[in-house]
Write a protein that binds this DNA or RNA. Structure first.
Lengths: 224, 224
DNA sequence: GGACAATAAGGACGTTCGTACGTATTGTCC
DNA sequence: GGACAATACGTACGAACGTCCTTATTGTCC
């Protein structure tokens, strides 16, 4: 899969260090994702998590040595889910004419489906830690960079196969697409469905125009 | 000024109710904005605010009856500042050929200047409360709606004066512009200056295209 | 089967949270 | 100038925070 950070999933980080695989950690993280999605990684508390799961608070500090470790593990687990629900799905579906279009489609569906109750986990945490230096912010930036690279690679593929015009600036396009996502995520969660649909449409229009004007897509060649 | 919510500033809300005008409240809110900009309105605590300002904690609870009241007052104060630093400045500068262009220019400068250390206060709080129902979220939505309307009105003006093509969907354009802002805000705060510049450029390109293709701008008429 | 480490629970720690209460002091209006 | 309300401080409260410690129990490897 073209989303490198998924191998940094908590299963990799933690379970590689211990002999006995931990389903408990997975259970904890599943709940942690649920909470952090709406309350933020900072709103995630060990005490609440313990009572929610009927666990002792002390045990949680053993599973995750510090709160920051828990937060990063939660972020990683959520992004592993992201890789499944967006990148892998787009790869399977192949609904769109271009790979980047499929990725964007999958992203909008992932938000509409409310895979996470608080919308896109990446945009949520990116906003939460945008101005708070530290390990979590660094990690968020890595995930963000991975998603940007994922889109850029897909665009590059389209250019190689001739479905996307070669002249365009890939980085510009990535910024535009991720901006529509940032706007759409906010709109969806604030209950502005119209704005969400408009952002999704703007994405499709933007990508279609790239193909029509100057590119030599397979479908156009066939029609001649 | 074309930004209706500025009259809901804390001066209006609080000082209208009391005989003695409170400069102390203004001092408190100035610091509260500073803190909440990076830590979030939820990260704002009365205890920290009191020690920062050399005040008693008890007194703060008199100035603002509850924490939520303090949070909303802080949001309103920040948005009053937003009205000054973006809307009013754009009105004075008249740098761009269209009013909406001036507003967007002013917005990008406002983020680049770091009027608030945590970037645009509106996008920050909108993201923070996107999934937390309550009075604060309702307030955020009002401010967001005001900003959207402000942009929409400016676009409408451009259409009336012939500087912006009449055929375009105003709501679509507003979504695109605010999306670029959401993306740019995130990029700027995460240290991705290139992405910030690209979003600013995308905004200008988008607006220029609207004028060139089909509109009959004054400058074009003069050249004939 | 003995050694060892992960799993699990529970309690105590010092701190900070938001709120409430009591008591002065200050400023303004009649 | 007396009444009243806003201003200001200090203390105390219960709850929740993250962390640390001790104590069993369970599972796995040599």
């Amino acid at each position: 899969m073209d989303f490198e950070l998924s191998r940094f999933s908590p299963q990799y980080i933690y379970d590689g260090r211990f002999r006995r695989g931990s389903k408990t950690r997975a259970v904890v993280l599943a709940r942690a994702i649920e909470v952090a999605s709406t309350e933020g990684l900072e709103g995630l508390t060990i005490g609440r998590l313990a009572t929610d799961l009927g666990m002792s608070k002390g045990h949680l500090t053993v599973l995750f040595p510090s709160k920051e470790a828990l937060q990063i593990a939660t972020l990683d687990a959520a992004m592993a889910r992201f890789a499944d629900e967006v990148v892998a799905r787009a790869e399977r579906a192949r609904s769109s004419r271009t790979r980047v279009g499929g990725l964007c489609d999958a992203w909008f569906r992932y938000v509409a489906r409310r895979v996470f109750p608080g919308g896109c986990f990446l945009y949520a945490t990116a906003n939460e830690y945008r101005a708070r230096p530290g390990a979590i912010r660094d990690r968020v930036r890595e995930h963000r960079a991975a998603w940007n690279r994922c889109l850029a690679n897909a665009i590059g593929d389209g250019q190689r196969t001739g479905r996307i015009r070669r002249g365009i600036d890939v980085a510009d396009l990535v910024v535009e697409l991720t901006s529509y996502q940032a706007g759409a995520n906010l709109a969806a969660l604030l209950g502005d469905r119209a704005a969400f649909r408009r952002a999704a449409r703007a994405t499709r229009v933007r990508l279609r125009r790239l193909a029509d004007a100057g590119a030599t897509p397979a479908i156009a060649l066939r029609r001649r």
